[in-house]
């Protein structure tokens, strides 16, 4: 593709994101037309500012983070089906949050973040440890081992929920959702997003070279072990923050980078922006469906995400006929 196509893609995705953000803020239990926002009464403005807006922003940030962590993971493992949600990282964060809640920790923003970081980190180290071989990362072991570890942790999380009769309390974690997002969480998300973006900007050349095998990368002057460590740290940080706020949401990390790479195959760093933009739009769109489809009930976000994403991905696979490793 030509150079300007990346610009067009980015601008197009940005416009889509802005439109969705406006609609998503306007929609909910009651529809507030964007035209009336400025002239609305005090109560309406309070609802918009403290309930609607944080939810919209949180969905944007979480979607962007999940997409980025999936893209990093696919780059790290040289495999298009790698994603923190199927490799145990999200599940680890979720289990740690549940256990933290059960032992009586106050799940405020700070506690949630370090708990999910810890859980995600431990899960990722286990999966990576199972897959590392002398010559580097064994991709098949990584994917299979990750899937097994992920299912195991998810089962334990459900078991913990059922045995302690606390499933309802952890519904948000297990099925995902942005219904109770606060402005404080949005601030925390913003800080983490900035850390992620700055780190990616500083190491974009190295991270892009992770797609090569270790020997070739070293020949070009990269230290693969160090780069892998940076990428892993970013994956864990992004995924655990996303889980701490939005719960366990699948597909975004798996499907969004794939779709961008299908439209615009390019090196990692050039595809970061469109991947994050599409991830944010996707999350907003799914959240919009979750809060409006079965009005006034909330539908489970992770299930909706998996359904929309799964259908989309199957269509893509059918068109492409090949998954390039």
């Amino acid at each position: 593709m030509k150079h300007n196509s990346l610009w067009r893609l980015n601008v197009g995705l940005l416009v889509l994101l802005i439109c969705l953000a406006v609609v998503s803020t306007a929609a909910g239990v009651k529809w507030y037309s964007p035209l009336t926002w400025v002239s609305a009464d005090h109560l309406t403005q309070q609802i918009l500012l403290t309930i609607r807006l944080p939810r919209t922003i949180a969905a944007i940030f979480v979607g962007a983070m999940l997409a980025l962590s999936g893209q990093l993971m696919q780059n790290l493992s040289h495999n298009p089906i790698a994603d923190p949600s199927i490799l145990g990282v999200n599940a680890g964060a979720m289990l740690a949050l549940m256990i933290g809640g059960l032992v009586g920790l106050n799940l405020n923003i700070v506690n949630s973040l370090w708990l999910s970081l810890l859980g995600a980190g431990v899960a990722f180290v286990i999966v990576l440890g199972l897959a590392m071989r002398r010559r580097g990362l064994d991709v098949l072991r990584f994917i299979l081992g990750g899937t097994v570890v992920s299912s195991l942790i998810t089962c334990i999380a459900y078991a913990v929920g059922i045995l302690t009769n606390q499933t309802a309390q952890y519904r948000n974690l297990l099925v995902g959702g942005f219904a109770n997002v606060t402005m404080g969480q949005v601030h925390a998300l913003f800080v983490v997003l900035m850390i992620l973006l700055i780190t990616v900007a500083c190491f974009h050349n190295e991270l892009s070279l992770l797609i090569l095998d270790d020997s070739t990368a070293r020949g070009l002057g990269v230290r693969p072990a160090r780069t892998r460590l940076i990428a892993s740290g970013l994956v864990v940080l992004a995924a655990s923050m996303a889980v701490a706020v939005g719960g366990n949401i699948g597909f975004v990390g798996l499907g969004v980078p794939q779709i961008i790479n299908y439209w615009h195959p390019d090196r990692f760093d050039r595809n970061v922006a469109p991947t994050m933009l599409l991830g944010a739009s996707f999350m907003l769109g799914v959240d919009l469906l979750a809060k409006t489809l079965d009005h006034p009930n909330e539908l489970p976000l992770s299930a909706l995400s998996a359904i929309c994403g799964g259908i989309f991905l199957m269509m893509m696979l059918n068109r492409k006929h090949e998954v390039v490793a």
């Binding site: 050349n205 190295e206 070279l209 095998d213 070739t216 020949g219």
Partner: peptide, 28 residues
């Protein structure tokens, strides 16, 4: 890497990269 350039026997490179993009990686 600016003194010695090494090319592995069967380098692992994603097939959807263009030649120009690949060559740019050499500038790391």
């Amino acid at each position: 890497a600016t003194k010695l350039a090494y090319l592995a026997q069967s380098p692992e490179v994603p097939g959807d990269l263009t030649v120009a993009t690949l060559v740019k990686l050499g500038r790391y």
